[in-house]
């Protein structure tokens, strides 16, 4: 004989079903709230510069120009301006207005891209040159007759296409900035080859270009560090 009557068994079964329902509801609630934790807005199915690609062979999403095409505004018809040469000769005037702004821009760009090797004075004693460039020919100094007499187009060409161990800087320095750097190189050549008689005291006092630290100072600092 059972110790429970039928009503009690029915109630127990009912309680069990209720318990299951609550569990199921709880699971649904957890599932719904977890569904809120999605990351598809954080990482959207789009590509951004420098992303990796599984589609292209070279693994990059950024594509090089299709051969034979020209990007908008990149038609380079002005040969002297974009190559530094005309009729197979280096141009000897800078195809841009050279004013103080332009020289300052050139100084800034020169200090970024050229000083590691050529030094702030253009004497070829930059940090990289003094720290380990083991070349048969040392880094060029601009302060010799060969380069002082070289047309400006030559410097532009070297920045664009590289020379000797120097790589091309075309991808890093834009054409206008290259000419600005050329202008500043000329200024450096003048400043490092000047006699006190070339400038009156007044002009010297009002010179506003940031004074370049001397190589001697810099070399000393390398040693003491």
């Amino acid at each position: 004989m059972s110790r429970f009557n039928s009503t009690e068994i029915a109630m127990a079964l009912q309680a069990k079903t209720n318990h299951r329902r609550i569990q199921a509801l709880g699971l649904v609630a957890v599932a719904i709230s977890l569904a809120g934790c999605h990351t598809d807005m954080w990482r959207q199915p789009k590509t951004q510069p420098l992303d990796a690609s599984e589609f292209y062979v070279d693994g990059q999403v950024s594509r090089p120009l299709v051969p034979g095409t020209i990007a908008r505004d990149h038609l380079r018809e002005d040969e002297p301006y974009f190559t530094g040469a005309a009729n197979a000769k280096w141009v000897d005037t800078i195809p841009h207005t050279v004013d103080k702004e332009f020289l300052k821009r050139g100084q800034e760009r020169f200090n970024i891209y050229c000083t590691p090797c050529h030094g702030r004075l253009g004497d070829g004693k930059g940090m990289i040159a003094t720290r380990g460039y083991q070349l048969r020919r040392p880094v060029a100094s601009y302060h010799n007759d060969r380069l002082r007499n070289m047309p400006v187009g030559y410097f532009y060409d070297v920045i664009t296409n590289g020379y000797g161990a120097m790589y091309s800087y075309a991808s890093r320095v834009e054409p206008e900035d290259r000419w600005a750097i050329v202008a500043y190189i000329r200024a450096l050549q003048l400043s490092q080859h000047a006699n006190p008689s070339d400038a009156d005291g007044k002009a010297l006092a009002s010179a506003e270009l940031t004074p370049s630290p001397t190589s001697a100072l810099r070399d000393e600092r390398v040693v003491t560090r």
């Binding site: 590691p116 090797c117 990289i128 720290r131 380990g132 460039y133 161990a165 120097m166 790589y167």
Partner: peptide, 8 residues
Amino acid sequence: MSCHSQIW
């Protein structure tokens, strides 16, 4: 490689 074609 601008530098490391020559250094290290």
